[in-house]
Design a protein around this nucleic acid. Structure first.
Length: 275
DNA sequence: CTTTGCACCTGTTGGC
DNA sequence: TGCCAACAGGTGCAAA
């Protein structure tokens, strides 16, 4: 599930239920995520106060003062809040691997069928964590701009679609929105990144920002509340221009949408609109 | 340093 | 209807 808009929506959804609350209990039902959940996490976290809930790339960061809880939803993860007293009546399901119980008996519950997600603990400056230290800029900041893209890509033969999904270049652009942004910018996913000029990068950067903002707004509006909901955000019902539409007709020109593989991921594009 | 491909998992889908 | 291969929203990492 999680593209950046869903992680952002999740972050905003859980934040008000967590901030300033104390952690009363930790339940690990299956520690085998992408990396093992630390075995002493219950002892580490119990009694700590959550100072803030933020996001960096697709990592959710719960600042607990003495350290930070890092959560990642991987490919299939989702978080939801269970409000008391209902939280006691909701039995955990098969893939509910992790619970944080708060001082008001609310529960933050992680579900992750494929277990590509992560729950990690880091002491000290969170931006120094190896997983975060070498990330590119956030897409919705001014640091992500056409000059940066242009300079970063000189002499690079990597296809622009693959490069757009490289976290060292810019974070948070997953497969769906890489495809959609390239369509919006009119750029063929196969073009070598180093052959794209400043003007086209300006269009692409703008397309990425617009696509993400629209999706976050859709997610935020369709998802009334993270409490006791399944947390299915808006982009499930949003319609795509190219993603998943192989063989269908381009909504702009009527040509047939094509599908190719790039870096073991599916790319969708209109060879007429995207050159 | 760049580029490529694999690995980690389970659940769903589509073809035969 | 049943079976099995292919595929799915991510991304760190090893190898070339």
């Amino acid at each position: 599930m999680p593209e950046l808009p869903e992680v952002e929506t999740t972050c905003r959804g859980i934040e008000p239920h967590l901030v300033s609350h104390y952690i009363a209990n930790v339940t690990v039902r299956n520690a085998k995520l992408r990396w093992p959940i630390p075995s002493d996490l219950k002892e580490t976290l119990t009694g700590l106060q959550i100072k803030s809930v933020t996001r960096r790339a697709k990592y959710l960061l719960l600042d607990c003062g003495v350290g930070t809880l890092i959560m990642h939803l991987g490919m299939s993860g989702s978080l939801r809040m269970l409000a008391p007293p209902l939280s006691q009546q909701e039995p955990p399901q098969k893939h509910d691997h992790f619970d944080l119980t708060l001082d008001d008996d609310a529960i933050l519950r992680l579900k992750d069928p494929r277990r590509f997600g992560a729950v990690l603990w880091h002491i000290g400056d969170i931006m120094c964590h190896p997983l975060l230290a070498n990330l590119g800029p956030e897409p919705l900041t001014t640091v992500f701009n056409e000059q940066l893209m242009y300079e970063k890509t000189r002499n690079r033969r990597t296809p622009i679609k693959v490069l757009l999904m490289d976290n060292h270049v810019v974070v948070g652009v997953g497969n769906i929105y890489a495809n959609e942004a390239l369509f919006r910018a009119g750029i063929n996913p196969k073009i070598a990144a180093g052959k794209i000029g400043l003007a086209r990068y300006k269009k692409l950067v703008q397309a990425v920002k617009e696509i993400l903002v629209l999706a976050i707004e859709a997610g935020g509006s369709s998802l009334r509340d993270f409490v006791n909901s399944d947390g299915k955000p808006g982009y499930f019902q949003q319609q795509y221009w190219v993603y998943g539409r192989v063989g269908e007709l381009c909504r702009k020109c009527g040509a047939t949408i094509k599908q190719i593989k790039q870096g073991q991921r599916s790319s969708f594009y209109c060879s007429n609109c995207q050159r």
